[in-house]
């Protein structure tokens, strides 16, 4: 165990106890994310059942989804994952906080853009099609699934603000680096979940 170096972090090249401690923390976060994924898995399973059996005379997926809008959301979120990747590289190889902050700032903007686009998409569905969650079982689970993802992304943005404050106060010390690492895991995982939502909800919903 003592030879483990945590990938992605420059916590010091010789100080292996620090890396050991980091490993435990980051592994714990992975496990927590696994439980979060179980939550999404159950949401997907419910969606699979209700998007077919729960339409109840209300609008069907094919009537309310707009692939163009969803594509822009997807691009915004994927781009934000890319910028976070750049932030992680800056974290690992540069001691320069400016590049890190810039990339994190770009990630924040793209994340916020995603939230805005998704909210606009919901508003469109409600105003044009009267597709509120109260209309049918399908819409209930649609809003709960996308809404849970939305809340996760919003929480990620709040987390970024907190990290900005910690960067300003503490600088780039071990604890802050580890938190950025976990934020990165969280953020990329939300991207993975969104890719699943995009394919499973929107693409297959619009498939003829």
């Amino acid at each position: 165990m003592s030879d483990v170096r945590h990938p992605g972090l420059n916590l010091g090249t010789t100080d292996s106890p620090v890396h050991d401690a980091a490993e435990e923390t980051v592994f714990g976060f992975w496990v927590l994310m696994m439980s979060d994924l179980a939550l999404f898995a159950v949401l997907f399973a419910t969606y699979a059942a209700m998007s077919v059996h729960g339409i109840a005379g209300g609008p069907a997926p094919v009537e309310i989804f707009d692939l163009k809008s969803t594509l822009w959301q997807t691009l915004a979120l994927l781009a934000s994952s890319f910028t976070f990747g750049m932030a992680a590289l800056a974290l690992k190889y540069d001691d320069d906080r400016r590049a890190l902050s810039l990339w994190l700032g770009a990630t924040f903007v793209l994340g916020a853009l995603f939230l805005g686009l998704e909210a606009r998409d919901w508003a469109r569905m409600v105003t044009e099609h009267g597709a509120t969650p109260q209309v049918s079982g399908f819409l209930s689970i649609f809003y709960l699934l996308t809404g849970t993802h939305f809340v996760h992304v919003a929480a990620g943005l709040l987390w970024m603000l907190v990290m900005a404050a910690q960067l300003a106060i503490f600088g780039l010390d071990g604890a802050v680096k580890l938190r950025l690492m976990r934020l990165a895991i969280y953020w990329h995982l939300l991207d993975v979940v969104w890719v699943a939502i995009f394919s499973f909800v929107f693409l297959s919903g619009l498939a003829p």
Binding site: G54, Q134, S140
Partner: peptide, 18 residues
Amino acid sequence: WLDRHAGFHFFTVGSGGD
């Protein structure tokens, strides 16, 4: 809870709940 207080239809009879 959403069914009870926000009018969702996950488990209700009718409106596609099950």
